[in-house]
């Protein structure tokens, strides 16, 4: 079962916690132990605001195992306002209405569950800004 693994991800999953490099001020999502820009090891947690813009979207109809219950869903790359690009599902939008360049904001949804006896993984999805 996926218990410790999903627990370890909760800060990023629920609050978009990434890292800020104290040396070069780079912002990175998800959390890192080493700065991808300068290689420094002095990083602090940084919660991203959750606003962003879609860079690309694709409507998934054949999903990997664990996600079939949600098809069809829109998968997207979302460029957060602070810079990093996140791969995530869209929510509260019909997949055929999802398109690149949409303003979106982070919400929390069920992402997957580990069978009927395992933990439920909650995490970020993105919904059109101002919805409803």
């Amino acid at each position: 079962m996926d218990i410790a693994r999903s627990w370890r991800q909760q800060d990023s999953n629920l609050r978009l916690v990434g890292s800020r490099c104290r040396v070069c001020e780079a912002l990175v999502f998800p959390q890192r132990l080493r700065c991808p820009s300068c290689g420094g090891a002095d990083l602090a947690d940084h919660a991203f605001q959750g606003g962003g813009t879609t860079v690309s979207v694709a409507t998934v109809r054949e999903a990997p195992r664990g996600f079939a219950g949600q098809v069809p869903y829109a998968a997207a790359l979302v460029r957060l306002d602070e810079g990093p690009v996140v791969a995530a599902m869209l929510a509260d939008v019909e997949p055929e209405e999802a398109c690149p360049g949409m303003r979106v904001s982070m919400i929390t949804r069920r992402i997957r569950q580990d069978g009927d006896d395992g933990p439920i993984v909650y995490g970020y999805k993105f919904a059109p800004e101002g919805s409803p």
């Binding site: 991800q9 860079v55 690309s56 979207v57 694709a58 998934v60 054949e62 999903a63 990997p64 664990g66 996600f67 949600q70 869903y73 998968a75 997207a76 790359l77 791969a87 995530a88 599902m89 690149p100 992402i111 997957r112 993984v121 995490g123």
Partner: peptide
């Protein structure tokens, strides 16, 4: 992978772009 992406979804996102 943990958020419903696989190689096909990744290729689809790149293909759209």
């Amino acid at each position: 992978a943990g958020f419903g992406m696989g190689p096909s979804v990744g290729a689809a996102l790149a293909m759209r772009r």
